[in-house]
């Protein structure tokens, strides 16, 4: 995996600090071309991996990079699913089961169970889960997707409920059907490591907030640091700037000093932002094997 992954919150007005900033970002990125321009700028900086949600607008972005594969041969998508608002809004208007039916390719699948004429077997429930994954993956067909992430709202919902079997179903399906590594985004790293290990997902790939001030690191920053030391999971750090609460240099210096972090996901709205994050990471996170780094970074 490359060491710097570009995230997509900034493109869709997800800003954990300011609603006003979020609105400005929505304006800035309301045309797909604006998103594509930032992705191309990242590519030029050697950042080829795009970690994105399965937002409807991703279809057009994927189309662009599929059509220009020759120009961007290393462009890679690490999709995170589902785009939860899509489902949450559907639940409000159609109810819980109605929402699931709406996103299934074959609406008839749940009918008998919904009518209460019979209960569903485990195999059928798992069939529904994998069909939902397939529906989300459709837009990325033809692009490399080496990692498929489960979004934190779902990972954490399942973690809390103790619905551990779903992790195993997701992991198996992602490996078998997409030849990809299953990844889990969470705000509750200690609980995630424990549960994923418990269902037999060894050395799981987990993306969580890792920042100097402990912002949204549920379970506490000490537990996170202990887990990083123990190296029992593959760590991807997000929210390293804690939504802007930590000055960039201080944030990057701290996160790069933590052990066993494989990659950092960051958000950027311009070529200049991308270059400055890139420079900070180069300074504080020197490549162990110069030139042989999988991120494709140039040796300074």
């Amino acid at each position: 995996m490359e060491r710097l992954l570009l995230g997509d919150n900034q493109f869709f007005g997800v800003n954990h600090m300011s609603e006003e900033k979020a609105r400005q970002q929505q304006m800035q990125f309301q045309d797909d071309e604006a998103i594509i321009a930032v992705l191309e700028a990242a590519y030029a900086e050697g950042i080829h991996s795009f970690m994105c949600t399965t937002h409807d607008r991703m279809g057009a972005i994927a189309d662009h990079f599929r059509a220009h594969r020759d120009e961007f041969p290393e462009f890679t998508v690490l999709p995170g699913m589902p785009y939860a608002h899509k489902y949450a809004n559907a639940v409000t208007t159609d109810g819980m089961v109605g929402a699931i039916q709406k996103f299934l390719p074959d609406g008839g699948l749940l009918d008998a169970a919904v009518r209460g004429t019979r209960s569903m077997a485990r195999k059928e429930i798992e069939g529904v889960l994998t069909l939902l994954v397939d529906a989300e993956m459709k837009m990325f067909a033809g692009l490399p997707t080496p990692v498929v992430w489960l979004q934190n709202v779902v990972t954490d919902l399942l973690l809390g409920m103790g619905f551990n079997g779903a992790f195993e179903v997701f992991a198996r399906h992602v490996r078998e059907k997409y030849d990809a590594e299953p990844g889990f985004i969470t705000m509750n790293l200690p609980l995630a490591v424990e549960r994923l290990n418990a269902v037999g997902i060894e050395n799981p790939l987990i993306c969580s907030n890792i920042n100097k001030i402990g912002f949204r690191m549920s379970g506490g920053i000490d537990a996170y640091r202990r887990l990083l030391d123990e190296n029992r999971f593959r760590a991807v750090a997000m929210s390293v700037y804690a939504s802007g609460a930590i000055p960039p240099e201080e944030a990057i210096e701290w996160v790069c000093a933590q052990p066993h972090i494989e990659a950092i996901v960051f958000g950027a709205s311009s070529a200049r932002n991308i270059a400055s994050t890139r420079q900070l990471v180069d300074r504080y996170w020197p490549t162990q094997a110069a030139g042989a780094d999988s991120s494709g970074r140039q040796t300074p």
């Binding site: 600090m17 709202v153 809390g160 609460a245």
Partner: peptide, 17 residues
């Protein structure tokens, strides 16, 4: 002041502290 400064951590996070 921002939420990062005004929010107390919780033992488990889902959708908002």
């Amino acid at each position: 002041k921002y939420t990062t400064e005004l929010t107390e951590p919780v033992s488990f996070y889902l959708r908002g502290e």
